[in-house]
Design a protein around this nucleic acid. Structure first.
Length: 358
DNA sequence: CCCCTGGCAGCGCC
DNA sequence: AGGCGCTGCCAGGG
């Protein structure tokens, strides 16, 4: 007999969801491609080509395999979720079109200040559940359309989810907005090209997601060491959907060591308490239940013939419940350094310079 | 067929 | 947190 918790059980409980508008304005410049534009973006982010959009909308390509054969482990592995060819196109598209960052920061390690360069390219979109993006100008009486060409105007201010009042962003000066505590970060709405995948993932998993983190591992030299996405702001039992695009990389998981005071016996066998999933382009892993609370995961470095693998993009969707989540994600995935953009000719990320305006 | 060796993965320490 | 250096394993070649 198979386990009670199957993918069929998931699909068997269809969840009625309100249709939701994209948080970004749809803009079409004549016959050229349309873009997501927003004041928080360094540059407009194009929509997907129609054919690719259609293919992603038809996902998942296959049903998922449940991996829950170890204590506190609850995974769903789609092999793949996005067809291999669509995943390859999406990889190329996102690497070319998204703004990326190389976050650096200092930590004290044994009393010694150490400079950390995160060994991966990152970018992030979204805002926690206490807020949302809303076009406050459309609610105001009619002067905007004539004054500002609507086509180029950024849309979507950050507003309180409950009161729908605007929340200041970007280290707001308390004197200018008395009595209103704003965000230090400048939250960015999820662009349409990623929101499509977010909505598909919500429909398939029955989970809600308000954040999208993107990591680009340019080669085997890029990595992330063992950690859990168990931050307080995700709540207990967080569900996180993780997509792989591009090169195959190993996804390592291991059970957290037992607390010293607890009487549990450590997992000492080699196979128990750890696993390795080779993630291929288009795969999606949903980590749910007690997984984050009890397991660590990593993408280890690869060297030699595996080092120049053409690069891998990881997209994760998750739900941050409180403001601390928004501040944390922008601090550690955007930071305060320069914006980078993919340079196809040189096959590398290069600093993006704000075009000067006459 | 066996042994040697290089390369790679993994781990511990800073 | 990540980099580096040490070690042990494994595959492939001689």
């Amino acid at each position: 007999m198979t386990k009670k918790r199957t993918i069929d059980a998931y699909f068997g409980i269809p969840k009625a969801k309100k249709p939701r508008y994209s948080d970004t304005q749809v803009v079409t410049d004549g016959e050229s491609a349309s873009y997501s534009k927003h004041a928080s973006y360094p540059f407009p982010i194009p929509h997907l080509p129609d054919a690719l959009e259609a293919e992603i909308s038809g996902s998942p390509a296959r049903e998922a395999r449940v991996i829950a054969d170890q204590p506190d482990l609850d995974l769903l592995h789609f092999e793949p979720y996005i067809s291999r060819s669509a995943a390859r196109q999406l990889f190329e598209f996102l690497r070319s079109e998204l703004p990326f960052y190389r976050v650096e920061y200092d930590i004290a390690r044994g009393g010694i200040k150490t400079h950390i360069r995160t060994p991966r390219w990152t970018t992030v979109f979204g805002v926690d559940e206490t807020a949302r993006f809303e076009d406050i100008r459309s609610a105001a009486s009619g002067l905007t359309a004539d004054v500002l060409p609507l086509k180029d105007a950024p849309k979507g201010e950050v507003v309180d989810a409950r009161t729908r009042k605007q929340i200041p962003v970007g280290k707001p000066n308390p004197k200018e907005t008395p009595g209103q505590k704003g965000y230090k970060a400048i939250p960015r709405p999820i662009p349409y090209c990623l929101d499509l995948l977010r909505r598909s993932t919500e429909a398939v998993t029955g989970c809600n997601f308000n954040f999208c983190l993107v990591n680009y591992y340019a080669s085997g030299a890029d990595s992330i060491s063992f950690h859990s996405d168990d931050e307080r702001f995700l709540g207990s039992l967080p569900a996180i959907a993780s997509f792989s695009l591009g090169a195959k990389r190993d996804f390592l998981m291991k059970h957290k060591p037992p607390k010293p005071e607890s009487g549990e016996t450590a997992c000492n066998s080699t196979s128990q308490g750890s696993l390795k999933l080779p993630l291929l382009s288009g795969d999606m892993v949903l980590m749910r239940g007690k997984t984050q609370a009890n397991w660590l995961h990593s993408i280890p470095k690869r060297s030699g013939k595996n080092e120049w693998d053409g690069g891998r993009i990881n997209i994760t969707f998750r739900q941050a419940l409180v403001r601390g989540g928004t501040e944390n994600y922008y601090q550690y995935n955007v930071g305060s350094g320069p914006v980078y953009k993919w340079n196809a000719a040189g096959q590398e990320m290069i600093p993006w310079i704000q075009p000067s305006r006459p």
